[in-house]
């Protein structure tokens, strides 16, 4: 699979590490979260058949984390908008 690093361009997937689902922000105030809400942040992740926002890090390259949307069926990758680039 080729992964488009926003800094280095298309590179082989072996240069990257997978960081799981993206856009799951650390709760702004963890202390005010009840157990269920906190557990949802820590343990619950989407596992869709289809498009999924993911975090990757170019660990054997520029070491930058970034986001992309990958279709888990076809591996088609569409970059996310720049505003969401890292989170």
């Amino acid at each position: 699979m080729l992964i488009p690093c926003p800094w280095c361009g298309d590179r082989e997937d072996i240069e990257f590490k997978y960081g799981g689902a993206a856009q799951i922000a650390y709760p702004a105030n963890p202390d005010s979260a009840d157990d269920a809400a906190w557990a949802r942040y820590v343990f619950f992740r989407p596992n869709p058949k289809g498009k999924m926002a993911e975090r990757w890090v170019h660990s054997a390259g520029c070491r930058r984390w970034f986001n992309l949307v990958r279709d888990t069926v076809t591996h088609e990758i569409t970059p996310t908008p720049a505003a969401e680039e890292r989170r």
Partner: peptide, 9 residues
């Protein structure tokens, strides 16, 4: 790096 770049830029 993950925390620095993604949560605490």
């Amino acid at each position: 790096e993950e925390w620095l770049q993604t949560e605490w830029p």
